[in-house]
């Protein structure tokens, strides 16, 4: 079965659903009618500002938070412990036994999630190799660097070959190389048909990695769908002009229907009105310097996000 078939098929049949979740902690509304769903093979980026309710929503999947209203279902049935054992979870604040040795700990988690001892040991050795941790297998977790602890944490969520991965800020604190490795592993899991739900503040990374996102604000999912569709659905358009040399952006001030968003040495980014005269803008830009590229594009995911959360 090709990847395209898996993805195409699965996206129509979500397995995990969060339906109308509401949760209040005292005066604080953590979730307010929050709904989202994830399908097998789908990599869903769960975005939101701090305190928006991402972690609370994820914790409801594991029964760590009991919603006041709404329900969490797996294939339209209530989530049971036996289903939860087939989910891999990476909590926001990492959760490992600091003094337990890496391999022993991973085998323990694998067995708790339903593997027998030989299968657990085999899976752990495989993941230790994938994460380049084989030589640290007998080290205590506390003896590892932050990055390696993060890898062990991800290995703990993968060791039992889950049907769904729920990862709360998996890229936080990782160096660029580790980010690439982790992104590759997540992509591979999604390609195998595993549903992946992860939260992140690294929006450019999410844009590269995910086909779908859900944006939550004040406890409610305010925007969700395919990244490309969300971008193109925005009425805003951005004009990115690259020149062969440094450009003085002062000429933009006289340009009707355009406002400067970002300016670097040889590159400017403008927010333009829908009915802006692109030819006039190209002409103005040419007079300012030699143009190497002239691109009209929908907003980036980060701009869609900022616009959606009103910041």
């Amino acid at each position: 079965m090709t990847l395209a078939i898996i993805r195409g098929m699965c996206h129509h049949e979500p397995v995990l659903r969060l339906d109308g979740l509401s949760k209040r902690f005292g005066d604080v509304i953590a979730l307010a009618d929050c709904s989202l769903s994830v399908a097998p093979g789908q990599m869903l980026g769960f975005l939101g500002p701090n305190g928006a309710g991402k972690t609370t929503a994820m914790r409801t999947i594991f029964g760590l938070v009991r919603p006041d209203r709404g329900r969490v279902t797996w294939e339209d049935s209530e989530l049971t412990t036996s289903v939860r054992r087939r989910i891999g979870y990476m909590p926001e604040e990492r959760g490992l036994y600091p003094k337990m040795r890496v391999r022993k700990q991973l085998v323990y988690f694998g067995r708790l999630h339903g593997l027998d001892l030989p299968s657990a040991e085999q899976a752990v050795d495989r993941w230790l190799e994938v994460f380049d941790l084989t030589d640290r297998a007998n080290a205590k977790v506390v003896e590892l660097s932050h990055g390696n602890q993060q890898r062990v944490q991800l290995a703990a969520s993968l060791v039992h070959d889950p049907m769904l991965l729920v990862l709360d800020e998996p890229f936080a604190g990782l160096d660029p190389i580790a980010v690439v490795t982790m992104a590759r592993i997540l992509r591979e899991q999604a390609e195998r048909g595993i549903a992946v739900l992860f939260s992140s503040h690294q929006l450019d990374l999410v844009e590269d990695l995910c086909d779908d996102v859900a944006i939550i604000n004040a406890g409610q999912v305010i925007l969700s769908g395919r990244v490309a569709q969300l971008r193109s659905a925005s009425p805003k358009r951005y004009l990115e002009i690259a020149t062969s040399g440094p450009v003085d952006p002062s000429w933009i001030d006289q340009l009707p229907g355009a406002s400067l968003v970002e300016s670097r040495d040889d590159r400017i980014r403008l927010l333009v009105d829908e009915d802006a005269n692109l030819e006039m803008m190209a002409s103005a830009a040419t007079q300012a310097g030699e143009i190497s590229s002239f691109t009209l594009e929908p907003p980036r995911l980060s701009e869609v996000f900022t616009s959606a959360v009103g910041r």
């Binding site: 604040e93 959760g95 490992l96 988690f109 999630h113």
Partner: peptide
């Protein structure tokens, strides 16, 4: 305190 319980509760009541 070390949040490992969040991982455990996914597998054990």
């Amino acid at each position: 305190a070390n949040r490992v319980v969040e991982l455990l509760l996914g597998a054990i009541k």
